[in-house]
């Protein structure tokens, strides 16, 4: 078993389902399990991906339709939950939100941007 697989197996089922959901949402069209597997970085077994997709479908978080011999999956869209409007309440108004909302990255100043481009070049090697 490779390191990657070991790590993948340490993920809890909830985390795995979230990651599969993220893949479904990042695609523009319904995806086959093989496409989802590739979208996860390819470190997970095909059967694991299948099981997870089936579980998401059962929970109503993903929709599926028949395509050829198998199914293709898409995220279940729920207006109240997934529109940008829903996030407005979280982000609106105040500036000192940092203590409540931990955002992944802050915006860059022009100087920061140059530095970062250079660092990204280093990280890409």
């Amino acid at each position: 078993m490779t390191d990657d697989q070991e790590r993948a197996d340490r993920r809890s089922p909830g985390m795995l389902e979230d990651e599969v959901l993220a893949v479904l949402w990042s695609g523009s069209a319904p995806m086959s399990p093989a496409e989802v597997q590739a979208g996860l970085g390819g470190s997970l077994a095909y059967t694991t991906v299948m099981t997870t997709l089936a579980r998401l479908h059962r929970k109503g978080l993903a929709t599926r339709e028949r395509a050829g011999r198998g199914f293709v999956y898409a995220p279940a869209v729920d207006e109240a939950s997934h529109t940008a409007e829903a996030m407005k309440d979280l982000l609106a108004r105040r500036q000192d939100r940092a203590a409540v909302l931990a955002q992944f990255v802050s915006r860059l100043s022009p100087g920061d941007e140059q530095t970062l481009q250079r660092l990204l070049g280093e990280a890409g090697d």
């Binding site: 389902e17 939950s81 529109t83």
Partner: peptide
Amino acid sequence: RALRRMRGGPGGLVIVDDPAPGAYAV
């Protein structure tokens, strides 16, 4: 209150259909 209205994934992930990049822990 805002979170209560959003349906999250089993691991607590909420995905918002918005082209502007954003990610927050609430």
